[in-house]
């Protein structure tokens, strides 16, 4: 019996969400027993480091079938390892790639599946997880009833813990993999930018910014704070910003440590996607803007006055 973690990499390095997933796996193993095996497709320059976060073993999977990301191949290779190592609890990050294999893995293992999981399981009687539902408007406690469980953990939901051990690393070549059915023609990565779903700080702006030409201020504040940028729906609908930045009920749901909302009114659909943020700052010229009710800190003021001052102050404090 073991806990098996899908260890996602980016540019041959483990992502922050992967370290969270390993920590999650360790926490489960402490409750249910068994060892923690982290599995990554292809090598990672820091494979042994996963031991620090709770992995007893790190398995790297190799094979020409894995050269490009194909959900059916990745899921098959990973599921095979889960079977041969007696995986009972399978942890995957609730990222785009994680979610695209989670369902397939669950089918291959005849397991119960819970995505969008935001906390450690309660194992006092049975196996109960907490998941986000209604696009951030609520949570549900879900009992997972199968012997094998696949859990997709939302980034920024659990803390990364360290355990001072190092995991043994071994390579493995799964047999009998299907040939990839999808061919990748082109990949565009937004390099140098922090993916919105994984960012710890997000600076977001709405219609109050008046036009796309004013986003340099938003970008500048984000750069000083090491933040990702986001926007409200109308802003992406009007093509002021790319759709990939649209947060809310019909956009991306995020839960950073800090969400700074500038010139956003705080409509229910917007709040749905961001209200799980630990701390919310709202800057709005209208003291009656509904967003202030959902905020921890607020400034009533005109963005064109407040933002330059805030950027300057943030630069000064970053320099000191």
């Amino acid at each position: 019996m073991s806990v098996i973690v899908f260890a996602e990499t980016r540019d041959q390095q483990y992502k922050k969400s992967t370290l969270e997933a390993v920590s999650y796996g360790k926490e489960v193993a402490l409750k249910t027993g068994g060892k923690v095996i982290a599995v990554s497709i292809g090598g990672a320059s820091d494979a042994a480091s996963l031991g620090t976060y709770g992995a007893d073993e790190v398995l790297t999977l190799h094979g020409t079938e894995f050269t490009t990301f194909s959900p059916e191949v990745y899921a098959a290779g990973f599921a095979e390892v889960c079977k041969t190592h007696g995986g009972k609890t399978i942890i995957i990050s609730n990222t785009y790639s994680g979610k695209s294999i989670a369902g397939r893995v669950a089918v291959l293992l005849q397991a119960a599946l819970a995505t969008n999981v935001v906390d450690y399981p309660d194992t006092t009687s049975g196996f109960r997880v907490k998941r986000g539902v209604f696009s951030g408007k609520a949570f549900a406690y879900v009992e997972m009833q199968s012997d094998i469980k696949v859990i997709a953990v939302t980034p920024n939901s659990v803390e990364i813990k360290t355990y001072g051990a190092s995991g043994s690393v071994s390579a493995h070549q799964p047999a009998g993999l299907p040939a990839p059915a999808t061919r990748i023609e082109d990949t565009q990565t937004i390099s140098g930018k922090i993916p919105l779903t994984e960012a710890e700080v997000v600076v977001s702006a709405g219609r109050g910014l008046k036009g796309p030409e004013n986003w340099n201020m938003v970008e500048e504040l984000a750069a000083v704070l090491g933040a990702a940028t986001a926007c409200s729906k109308p802003v992406s609908d009007m093509h002021w910003r790319p759709h990939s930045e649209h947060v809310g009920q019909t956009g991306i749901t995020i839960k950073p440590n800090l969400y700074i909302a500038i010139g956003i009114s705080g409509a229910i659909q917007h709040l749905a996607g961001v209200s799980s943020s630990k701390v919310i700052v709202v800057i709005n010229k209208d003291a009656e803007a509904p967003f202030f009710k959902a905020a921890d800190y607020g400034i009533v003021g005109d963005v064109f006055d407040v933002l330059p001052k805030l950027i300057q102050a943030a630069k000064a404090s970053a320099a000191s």
């Binding site: 990301f69 990748i184 082109d186 990949t187 990565t189 779903t197 990939s244």
Partner: peptide, 8 residues
Amino acid sequence: IDGGRETV
């Protein structure tokens, strides 16, 4: 995809 877009 995470942090980008892919054509397949």
